[in-house]
Design a protein around this nucleic acid. Structure first.
Lengths: 150, 150
DNA sequence: CCAAGCTGGTTGACGTGTCAATTATGCTCG
DNA sequence: CGAGCATAATTGACACGTCAACCAGCTTGG
């Protein structure tokens, strides 16, 4: 049986998908950057803000945000240098490390979160009809599910 | 008038959109990488392959693939070092540079393109119903159009 | 014609992401 | 117990992207 290759139209949609995603992320990153945060910073601060005690084990945090351990480790290193978080040793497991939200981190997260939500609405929600928004949810779910199967 | 913030559902779709896009791109990048190319490499090789004479002015190439000049410059530098392309001076404009597809680049592009198309089908096209695929096209168009307006 | 500004392209610094190797601790089974 | 393996996290090397600065060479208006 011969392999079926994507048609011209299918390819066009694929490229649209990739390029639009990139464009949207880039725009959001630029807006966040104006306030001094990268999207990665925001992701980490959000997770820590919601955590009980504003602290999390490194590996929990990694799975919570869906990052590889080493990626998180590098990122926490940079955030620590800027005073957004600190690291503490874990009492129950001597190998472990905890990331703790630092005051500076909490403050900038507070300052950024409302504009960020507004940006999400402007860039994303306002661009789509309610039907399209719902369809997007289903499409993303389908893609993820398909990806998860092997 | 008070600013309307995204609802919980809207936020969920936003996060799905961002995370799924990232997951899909990452998976595709990993597959291409197994054959020795990054997605950027593939983009550049595709553009050069389709260009008349397998060559393009740097700035044309940049707009063709939608990259900033400096990004392209860095990337061409890396690709040149690997022998995938070469650079030549432009005859009509002494400031200009042309990127030319090198034999090694053409060869690996040939080798990679069929598996790559198959991957697009497997990862993306096969995951969606025809309706969903069409909807995706419309949604991406809406997002891009909205983004373009300031 | 030539100074001022525009354009094409490169470079350096730095933040980011991945991979593979490393270190140190925990755990388990003979 | 202790050897061997699994796990937590970090590190180093390198590819990638962005930004700002830079160097030419073009272009144009006085």
């Amino acid at each position: 049986m011969t392999t079926r290759f994507p048609t011209r139209d299918e390819l066009r949609v694929w490229r649209d998908f990739i390029e639009t995603g990139e464009a949207v992320r880039t725009e959001m990153a630029a807006r966040l950057q104006r306030q001094g945060l990268s999207t990665g910073d925001y992701t980490v601060l959000l997770a820590l803000s919601e955590a009980t005690g504003q602290r999390m084990r490194s590996s929990e945090l990694a799975t919570a945000v869906g990052w590889e351990r080493s990626r998180l480790s590098h990122h926490l290193g940079r955030m620590e240098k800027r005073g957004l978080i600190r690291r503490e040793e874990c009492l129950t497991d001597n190998r472990g490390a905890e990331a703790v939200l630092a005051p500076a981190g909490a403050e900038i997260f507070q300052a950024v979160t409302r504009p960020h939500l507004r940006d999400i609405r402007e860039i994303f929600v306002d661009a789509l009809t309610p039907d399209q928004l719902a369809a997007t949810g289903e499409i993303m779910a389908a893609l993820r599910e398909h990806l998860a199967q092997e």
